[in-house]
Amino acid sequence: MTRPQQFNPLSEEEQELATGYVLGDLTTEEVTRLEALLTENPALIQEIHALQTSYALMPQALDLVEAPASLQEKIVPTPAVATPSVATAPPQRRSRRSRLAWILTGLGAIATLLLLTDNLRLRSQLRLAQGGSPDQVANILRQPNSRLISLTGSDSDAAGTLLFTPGNWQEVIVSLGDLPPLPPDEVYHMWLQLENGDVIYCGEFQTGEDGSVFVRLTPLESPPEGVRATELYVTVDADEAAPDPTGERIMEGVI
C-alpha cells in the first residue's frame, strides 16, 4: 500500500473505505478491512469524522424557509407563562398554596412545556392513552392549569412526560418512549418522592414493543397537605412481586 499524496496521509483504499463507511455501503469484507486499518492509522478516524461532517452539511445549502409565525408561538416560551422557580418564590406564600402546587414549584415554565409539546403527534398519542377515554385525556388537556413534568432515562434515551391537573393527583396521564421493553413477567412502576422521605405509589404499566407507553394512572394516595413532592421515578419489578420503591431507577424527573 502506498501513501503517495503529501497533502493526504491516507491511501486510496483508505479513502474509499472511509467514504463507504460514511455512506453505509461497505460490504462485510470491507468493514473487516476498515476495522484493521483503523487500528493502524489514527488519521483514518479523523478522515471519517471529516467526511461525516461534510455529508451532514449538505442540507445547509438549502434555501432557508421561513417557518409560519404560528409555529413560533407554539415553540418559543413567552415570559407571561414562565413560572417562578423555588428560589424566587416568597417563602411565606408556600403555606397558602395547595399541596399539589408544590409538585410544580421549581419546574419552571410549565405552561410553556404544554405549549411546546402541543404537537399533532403527542396529542394523537395521548388520545390513545391506554385505559383512558379520549374524553378523559381531553378533559385534562382542557384545564388551563394542566401541568407536564418531564422524565428522562437514568441510563438510557428514554424520555417522556406526566400530565396532570393540580388538585387532582388521582388521575394522571403518562406518555413515555424509548423504554427498554420488558419480558411479560415484569412491569414498570411509577413513584412520587416526597420531601419528608415518603414515597407514593402511582401505578404500574407495560410498554409496547417499541418501548413506548401512553397510560392513565390512578394513584390511590395524594401528597399530604403541606408536604412537597420532589421527584418522580420509575422502577421495574417482577409482575408477581410487591412494588419496591427502592429498586433500580429506570427513569427520573425532578419536580
Binding site: 442540507p59 445547509q60 438549502l62 434555501d63 432557508l64 424557509v65 421561513e66 417557518a67 409560519p68 409555529l71 413560533q72 407554539k74 415553540i75 411546546l116 409539546t117 402541543d118 404537537n119 399533532l120 403527534r121
Partner: peptide
Amino acid sequence: AGLVYGIALKMLTNAAEAEDLTQEIFL
C-alpha cells in the same frame, strides 16, 4: 427555525408535517 423547517419541508413535502417535525426537533 428556517434551517430545520426547510429540511423538514423538503423531505416530508407537507407543511403540516414539517411544522410538527420542527416542533419535535426543538422539543
